[in-house]
């Protein structure tokens, strides 16, 4: 009963991920992504509180240009809903679902929670500045051979490796 379904071989998983991305290009002309959804959600919350302010903010105004359609009715939001469903299907059929806080053997759980929020906040800000995250920029633009996306990808690895030593107690 507790037998987990093993993970895929990384190269096989890579080919599968590449084919999903390619299918996305063929079907809709768009790539994959995730951070855009957080921008839409954040913008919708601001709009619910201060509609005029949101409609005049240059960063999110375009989301509210069509009064007939909800700002959340956007392809990236639907894609993320699908990602959550697909992830859930995989984790339940793989018998890997478990409520827990993932951390290294030396990490304190409270520190891990704080750093998860802090890391998330840095990422949310960064993804907006770079116009995408690991999936929307590095993966999608990487496959397109976009110059900026490749620069972005090396910057992500640089930032993570540069910071890794300082937070090693969280993970190893």
């Amino acid at each position: 009963m507790n037998e987990n379904r093993p993970l895929w071989n990384p190269y096989a998983a890579g080919v599968a991920l590449g084919l999903v991305l390619l299918a996305s290009f063929v079907l809709t002309g768009r790539g994959l992504g995730a951070s855009g959804t957080f921008k839409h959600v954040e913008a919708a919350v601001i709009h619910a509180v201060e509609p005029t302010w949101a409609e005049e903010n240059q960063n999110i105004a375009s989301f509210f240009s069509d009064p007939q359609r909800s700002s959340l009715n956007d392809w990236i939001v639907w894609l993320t809903i699908g990602s959550a469903v697909g992830g859930a299907m995989a984790v339940f059929t793989g018998k890997r679902f478990k409520v827990e806080t993932v951390r290294g053997p030396r990490a304190r759980i409270e520190n891990r929670w704080i750093l998860a929020v802090v890391g998330g906040a840095i990422s949310g800000f960064a993804a907006q500045l770079a116009r995408g995250c690991t999936s929307g920029q590095a993966l999608t633009g990487g496959a397109q051979l976009s110059l900026g996306s490749w620069v972005f990808m090396f910057a992500v690895f640089g930032g993570a490796y540069g910071m890794a030593w300082f937070v090693r107690r969280q993970w190893i």
């Binding site: 998330g120 690991t134 620069v151 910057a155 993570a160």
Partner: peptide
Amino acid sequence: QIVGGLLLGVGFIVGGYCPGTSVV
């Protein structure tokens, strides 16, 4: 893209995820 990339890398190792993987 350079500044955002560096910051996203920092957020990745500090927080443990990137936006897409955090959903899963």
